[in-house]
Simulated scan of single mutants.
Amino acid sequence: MTREPLGVAVIGYSFMGKAHSNAWRNVRAFYPGVPAVRQQVLVGRDEAAVKEAASHYGWAESATDWRSVIERDDVDVVDVCTPGDSHAEITLAALAAGKHVLVEKPLSNTVAESEAMLAAAREAEARGVRAMIGFNYRRVPALALTRQLIADGRIGAVRQVRAAYLQDWLADADAPMTWRLRKEQAGSGVLGDLGSHVVDQLHYLLGDPVVAASGHLRTFVPERTGPQGREPVTVDDAAWATLETGSGVVASVEVSRMATGRKNGLTLEVYGDRGSVAFDLERLNELMVLDRPDDVAAGARRVLVTETDHPWLSAWWPPGHVLGWDHTFTSQAADFLTAIAEGTSPQPSFADGLAVQRVLAAIEQSAGDDGRRVAVREGA
């Protein structure tokens, strides 16, 4: 039986901590059938800052020591929203303590860490403890509908995919140093940050794992100013890759945090032998669909993905009332709580996170060897 309400601790209070806090605060309002939750504690290193954030986001209390928090009896769920270098340590400790764990993407900074996390999650699952990785874009209704259209054969056999995730928050060479630009904390740059989303979407939409990669990485601004003065940027600013799936689909991928004028531009174009589907995150309630190949004058049509029978929409608003980026986190929290209550395996799993990490590692290996083709390591 699931104890209710479930006490939740979120580790990390900045960008992702805020998004996840919003989800935990609202999940029962839109998904009343899931277990009740208690926003127990928000954790961060800066005592004053995390205390203020906890007050704003609706948490009962704040703390600075995550190790003591995961041992508490009033904490049932640990939600990890920290930089990637601490994902493995926190997750392994939380699972060992019997806590259900949700981890923001990417799963960790290395394949080896991700493998250890998956092994721990499988052992914990045998004890009734659940673990999930937070690829929130799986809960965008338009992308879930894209997956359904592909699976139903509406665009025929998929041949190729064009994918790009472009932002510009680092385009200014004078933008300050941040932890995301230090390899020891972030693991990689835009490749792990945005590329992980793209690779997971390829796996999710196609149901077809990437088996080979060739890639290139570029750091356009090699130094930035941090608290102690100028320091080197040790990760990539932009990345390009050609990916191949097991069934022969070819995907071209571009990710960048230096694409001047693009704020959060995730675009996906899937081309089959009978049609196509195109998506743009900056218009996340819409799809452009071509699935009438016999009508040469038809062209692609705009589909507004807000109908109650579209994926994820039944919990929200009447048709035509669009959703936003933040809704994906609420649906994600609802899925995790449902899995906990029903004793099922939540998706996406740590195995999915490891699969993404292996593709990213292959891209990075290829980039270090003049873009040669690298096979993606197999096995879960």
Rank of each mutant, 00 (worst) to 15 (best):
L268Y: 13
E364I: 08
I90K: 02
G156L: 10
W312I: 02
E254P: 05
R28W: 06
E184R: 10
G84A: 15
A112S: 14
A278L: 09
V322S: 08
V296W: 09
D76A: 03
S196D: 04
R373P: 07
L6E: 03
R224Y: 09
F15I: 14
I363A: 09
S252Y: 04
G368S: 07
Q148P: 02
R262S: 04
R377S: 15
D326S: 13
A259Q: 03
E286L: 11
R38D: 09
Q148N: 11
W179H: 10
T178N: 14
W66D: 00
Q347D: 04
N26I: 01
R122W: 05
L170N: 08
H203G: 12
K183V: 12
P176L: 02
D152R: 15
P346N: 09
A131T: 14
G187L: 05
P319W: 05
H321F: 11
L149M: 15
V277G: 07
E231Q: 15
D85R: 12
R230N: 10
T225P: 06
I133K: 08
I363R: 07
A126Q: 14
R358C: 09
Q40R: 14
A333E: 08
T308A: 14
R25V: 01
D193P: 00
L107P: 02
V34G: 00
E125C: 01
D74T: 03
E254F: 11
A334Y: 11
S247M: 06
V129L: 10
S14L: 12
D291W: 13
V41Q: 01
I70M: 03
R292G: 04
G98F: 00
G299T: 00
R182A: 07
W66Y: 12
D291K: 08
A121Y: 12
P348Q: 06
D309S: 13
T338W: 11
D79V: 12
G229C: 07
E223D: 04
A121K: 08
E282R: 01
N109A: 11
A142Q: 03
K18H: 11
H310E: 07
P176F: 03
L42F: 08
Q167R: 15
V296M: 11
